[in-house]
């Protein structure tokens, strides 16, 4: 792999995500709503945590590098579209909504295939289900795109060198002409962010909206990643890792509130998450979302222990609470200012 001279990064503030799926819809309608075989693909998805995610159970599906080595884990079976993603259902709109001769239509709008086992799943099946017990039940939203990892397991897994990482910006792409559909990349990606197109028999994935980055509109230079520009909650920041003046850089490296999702997979993701604070449990002091759950998901790097990760999550919470308290007391905080994000140009710095 050639030396990467630039690296795009994205940061998500999970305290601001409202689970509206506008990012998902923007991505879907931009990139994967036209070609057959892409119906089930969500290059960007948002899943409820705790929950099984998309594909179902991806967090334990395998892939990534074994114990921080350079050896890709290809032992796990490939996810199946019906069982693990859920077959994307179609509807009989014509039957139900078209009338003839002025008669009220008889019929019911039904999904096909029916969302019953084994097709009882979709990208958002576990939405808002959560865990715990009322009134302390809890859940939060986790938006996910391809992490455009610095050490991409998909690139390492591909025997055709069809998956590649661009030198200029670190975006990971699949050369659709070279791809032969072996799907080692899907086995190798521990985040299961590569999708198999069964019609064209090639693997496809999030392209970080590179055509929008390459063809900058001079009249609208902030028109970059659709998932970022459409984000209702303004939870996403994008920047080049090398730009030490960016707000993303400040959040990750100066304020140190951005954590990686499952860094133990060993791929060095270029996406960062600010873990979600939550109210205290009833009659207790523990946060409603168990810190253990967050420590199992988030950390800095591959070699951290669980205890170190838990300490980091608690450290992030302490920083957030301390800076919020400053503002609540009438003071100012650079961190809170960045997180408030007054304009698009505060978040889109590519």
């Amino acid at each position: 792999m050639a030396k990467i001279t630039g690296q795009v990064q994205m940061l998500f503030d999970l305290n601001k995500c409202l689970g509206c799926q506008t990012c998902t819809s923007a991505c879907k309608t931009a990139w994967t709503d036209k070609d057959q075989g892409q119906e089930y693909m969500y290059w960007n998805n948002v899943e409820t945590v705790p929950g099984r995610g998309y594909p179902k159970g991806w967090q334990t599906m395998g892939g990534g590098f074994k114990a921080c080595t350079n050896q890709v884990d290809l032992s796990a079976p490939l996810p199946s579209i019906n069982r693990d993603y859920g077959a994307p259902w179609e509807y009989n709109y014509d039957e139900v909504l078209t009338t003839e001769g002025g008669d009220a239509t008889v019929g019911m709008l039904v999904p096909a295939p029916r969302p019953d086992a084994p097709n009882d799943y979709s990208s958002n099946w576990d939405e808002d289900v959560g865990a715990g017990a009322h009134p302390d039940a809890y859940y939060f939203y986790l938006p996910r795109i391809c992490n455009h990892c610095s050490k991409p397991a998909c690139v390492a897994a591909c025997p055709r060198k069809a998956v590649y990482k661009r030198e200029e910006d670190g975006i990971v792409l699949i050369d659709q002409d070279r791809c032969r559909g072996y799907r080692y990349c899907i086995k190798g990606c521990p985040y299961k962010k590569i999708y198999w197109n069964p019609i064209v028999k090639k693997s496809q994935k999030c392209i970080f909206c590179y055509p929008r980055l390459e063809n900058e509109d001079p009249e609208n230079p902030l028109a970059k990643n659709f998932c970022v520009t459409q984000c209702v909650g303004r939870i996403r920041w994008v920047a080049y890792a090398e730009d030490t003046t960016s707000n993303l850089y400040k959040l990750v490296n100066v304020w140190r509130v951005g954590l990686r999702l499952h860094p133990e997979f060993g791929t060095e993701p270029n996406t960062f998450y600010i873990p979600p604070l939550s109210p205290r449990v009833t009659n207790g002091t523990a946060p409603r979302i168990p810190t253990d759950l967050l420590a199992e998901m988030f950390g800095d790097n591959c070699s951290q222990t669980f205890e170190q990760r838990k300490a980091r999550v608690e450290e992030v919470f302490a920083i957030l609470e301390q800076e919020r308290a400053k503002v609540a007391a009438g003071g100012t905080s650079e961190l809170v200012d960045i997180l408030t994000s007054y304009s698009e140009s505060d978040r889109i710095q590519l």
């Binding site: 139900v96 239509t105 019911m108 709008l109 808002d128 959560g130 009322h134 039940a137 859940y139």
Partner: peptide, 29 residues
Amino acid sequence: HLCVSPRLPAGMALMYHGWESYMLKNNLD
């Protein structure tokens, strides 16, 4: 169809609103 979620208290059934009648079993006639 049922969705079981612990965020609900006992004693409540919840359905987000606005489903078209033609999306539910049988129609008005």
